[in-house]
Design a protein around this nucleic acid. Sequence first.
DNA 1: GTATCATTCAAACGTTCGTTTTAATGTCAA
DNA 2: TTGACATTAAAACGAACGTTTGAATGATAC
Lengths: 227, 227
Amino acid sequence: MNLRAVKPPHETRVRILDAAEELFMQRGFEGTSMRLLTSKAGVNLAAVNYHFGSKDALIEAVFRRRLDPMNAERVAELERLERSAAGAPLAPEAIIRAFIAPSLAMIEDAKGGGRSFIRLLGRAYTDPSKPIRALIGTLYAPAMKRYKAAFERALPELPAEELNWRMHFMFGTLAYTLAATDTVQLIAGCKPEDRYDARLLAERLAPFLCAGLLAPLPAGAGVKKAA
Amino acid sequence: MNLRAVKPPHETRVRILDAAEELFMQRGFEGTSMRLLTSKAGVNLAAVNYHFGSKDALIEAVFRRRLDPMNAERVAELERLERSAAGAPLAPEAIIRAFIAPSLAMIEDAKGGGRSFIRLLGRAYTDPSKPIRALIGTLYAPAMKRYKAAFERALPELPAEELNWRMHFMFGTLAYTLAATDTVQLIAGCKPEDRYDARLLAERLAPFLCAGLLAPLPAGAGVKKAA
DNA sequence: GTATCATTCAAACGTTCGTTTTAATGTCAA
DNA sequence: TTGACATTAAAACGAACGTTTGAATGATAC
């Protein structure tokens, strides 16, 4: 039988994923050597190639482990809202909050690696490596499709192209804000904001994003060419 | 005399900076080897260490070359606006447009390396390397101070802490939008947006950012605790 | 022409990289 | 106990890394 590995399920795998998550955040993918990684994880150097095949495959596993459940939760929450609404279009702010909630929940998981992962994820959209950007795109695609449809229903008068851009802006704001949690001080004097609160951050982000989404249409843009 | 280098002023330096700018964008800092870089620049392998001292110093030079003039232009434009206003506070949207204009102008410089630099810059705020983030912060600090003061004058009723966050959000949206110019298609179907126009992008960004900046205050946040 | 200096060049420095190999270890079925 | 199998371990692989060296090059000042 080959279902023997149920005893120590995949402890080595988990140790590697945890260490990789934190080190990738702190030092980037190329800045994290297999020797440092396996040393931090307390496993043998060859363990990564044995369990994952290669460093690149490990990177992909790190993203999949957290991002798949996170996006599943996003979709589930959206469906919950739509069921409650019973056919009526949702309020834009409700959609926005459903989308950002899982990110912020993961940030509050400071003890687990959630915080590290969120920052890592925020960087991934603009990573130099095209395969990594493509991976992120693939993992986000299903949830993005659902949310785009929800926004279209909530804002039928907004031109499709304009909605694309505004979702892009919103997505970017969220990604950057979560990735650059220590960059606020570049704007504020120099205080690193005493132990910032994810719930409070959501309360600040949601109105900002919602106002942007509902902003007046730009002058010359859009499908309909008005004087 | 040591002012001999005026003939071929610093052609090798410029060649290196241009190649570095493009390669750092395409492959990241650690993903760009000195051999590849000097090969693309058409100079000797030792030239980088001779002219800049080290790879890290080259990275800093790449940022300084473009970012210093860019931020100087931002400050100059803001001062121009303030002189025109003759003491009256500026319109928030005018401040926003003054800030984002140099970025978008540089994007339109597609033939020069401006486009590459902008994307590189958009990634730098969230770079894993703390020295790089610190460098960016230092280079931005003077302009950021001026713009923060301008926003405070334009929006005296907005709590200071709230302004910090909203500037952070706006800054993040701009940085991400410029860095992830190929990520829009993750949201839209799959069309890479036919040759996107910087001016049009500004027309879309400005209303979005302005609406976010002027959004209603969040419920529980802020200095003044209103029911 | 000769000395001076900045710059370029080819070659090598020692180190670290991701990965592979081969042997040891431990665990379960029979 | 024995054989099969998944996992771990130590050591080595060749390649690529950033940097340094010391000699050639070429232009300027005298």
